[in-house]
Simulated scan of single mutants.
Amino acid sequence: MARMPGAEWRPIPSNFTRGGQESVQGVVIHIMDGSLSGTDSWFRNPAAQASSHFGTGKGGQLYQWVDTADRAWAQAAGNRNWLSVENEGRGGDSLTSAQLDRCAAVLAWAHQVYGVPLAVTSSTGGRGLGYHGMGGSAWGGHTSCPGSAIVAQLPEIVRRAQALAGGGGGGGSTGGTYTVRSGDTLSEIGQRLGIDWHKIAEANGLRSPYVLQIGQRLTLPGAGSTTYTVRSGDSLSVIGARLGVSWQRIAEANGIRAPYVITPGQTLRIP
Score class of each variant (00 low, 15 high):
Pro155Trp: 11
Glu156Asn: 07
Val158Trp: 02
Arg159Phe: 09
Arg159Thr: 14
Arg160Met: 06
Arg160Val: 04
Arg160Phe: 00
Ala161Gly: 09
Gln162Pro: 02
Leu164Arg: 09
Leu164Phe: 14
Gly166Tyr: 11
Gly166Lys: 14
Gly167Lys: 12
Gly168Arg: 14
Gly168Pro: 11
Gly170Lys: 02
Gly170Pro: 00
Gly170Asp: 02
Gly171Trp: 00
Gly172Trp: 00
Gly172Ala: 05
Ser173Cys: 01
Ser173Met: 04
Ser173Pro: 02
Gly176Thr: 04
Gly176His: 04
Thr177Tyr: 05
Tyr178Val: 08
Thr179Pro: 01
Arg181Phe: 08
Gly183Cys: 02
Gly183Arg: 08
Asp184Asn: 15
Thr185Tyr: 12
Leu186Arg: 03
Leu186Ser: 02
Ser187Ala: 12
Ser187Lys: 07
Glu188His: 06
Ile189His: 00
Gly194Met: 03
Ile195Phe: 03
Ile195Tyr: 09
Asp196Gln: 10
Trp197Phe: 15
Trp197Gly: 06
Trp197Val: 06
His198Glu: 03
Lys199Ala: 09
Lys199Met: 02
Lys199Gln: 05
Lys199Tyr: 00
Ile200Met: 01
Ala201Cys: 08
Ala201Trp: 01
Glu202Val: 13
Glu202Ser: 12
Ala203Met: 14
Leu206Phe: 01
Leu206Glu: 00
Leu206Gln: 02
Arg207Thr: 08
Arg207Phe: 04
Arg207Lys: 07
Ser208Trp: 15
Pro209Ser: 14
Val211Trp: 02
Val211Asp: 08
Val211Arg: 14
Val211Ala: 10
Leu212Asp: 01
Leu212Ala: 10
Gln213Asn: 11
Gly215Asp: 06
Gly215Pro: 10
Gly215His: 09
Gln216Glu: 15
Leu220Gly: 00
Leu220Thr: 00
Leu220Lys: 09
Gly222Asn: 09
Gly222Ile: 03
Ala223Tyr: 09
Ala223Asp: 10
Ala223Met: 07
